[in-house]
């Protein structure tokens, strides 16, 4: 499977989003958040950052400061599927570290315990594994989300099965 082309958002797309948030309070965050969501690879290419800075009259250095300060923003293309492991307290007390470590070893990444907002994308851009500070789904702990669907009471084995399921399904789709 080939890595999909990096396609920056078009100027028209960005302009449309900028116009959507005319007020000045919170506009930078909202514009960047919306643009990232719009991008098929869920990230902000450099060209987009430059364009937004220019259009909004922002310092380039400030834009870069913002997109590296908030953990929501990605500067690299994300995988086709994203699995997020909640690292909230309830999930931690119910073993989410094990889930993360297991998932990392399954997908070939290395668990970077160094950072609560660590992320790993497989070289083929099929899968991104990342953590989230807390989904607020604590009663279902431990919780993971697979492409934004929440799955509670997760176990290491269940999660690995799910990942293999995704990979297998993909392989089948590609063959058919």
């Amino acid at each position: 499977m080939s890595v999909r082309e990096e396609a920056p958002l078009s100027a028209e797309q960005v302009d449309e989003v900028i116009e959507r948030f005319p007020g000045r309070t919170g506009d930078v965050l909202r514009i960047l958040e919306t643009l990232q969501e719009m991008h098929p690879l869920k990230y902000l290419p450099e060209a987009t950052l430059k364009y937004v800075a220019e259009r909004k009259g922002l310092a380039l250095s400030n834009v870069f400061s913002v997109v590296t300060f908030y953990s929501f923003f990605n500067l690299n293309p994300q995988g086709r599927h994203t699995i997020m492991v909640c690292r909230g307290t309830a999930c931690h007390t119910r073993g989410s570290k094990l889930l993360l470590d297991g998932l990392m070893s399954e997908s070939g990444g290395s668990a970077n315990g160094d950072d609560a907002s660590s992320s790993f994308t497989t070289p083929d851009h099929e899968l991104t594994v990342r953590t989230v500070a807390c989904f607020g789904q604590c009663a279902l702990a431990p919780v993971v989300s697979v492409d934004e669907d929440i799955h509670g009471h997760m176990s290491d084995l269940k999660l690995k099965r799910m990942v293999r399921g995704i990979v297998k399904r993909e392989a089948k789709d590609d063959n058919s």
Binding site: A59, N62, F64, S65, T68, F69
Partner: peptide
Amino acid sequence: ARTWNVRGR
């Protein structure tokens, strides 16, 4: 000039 800023946190 606003050339400098802080990356990351």
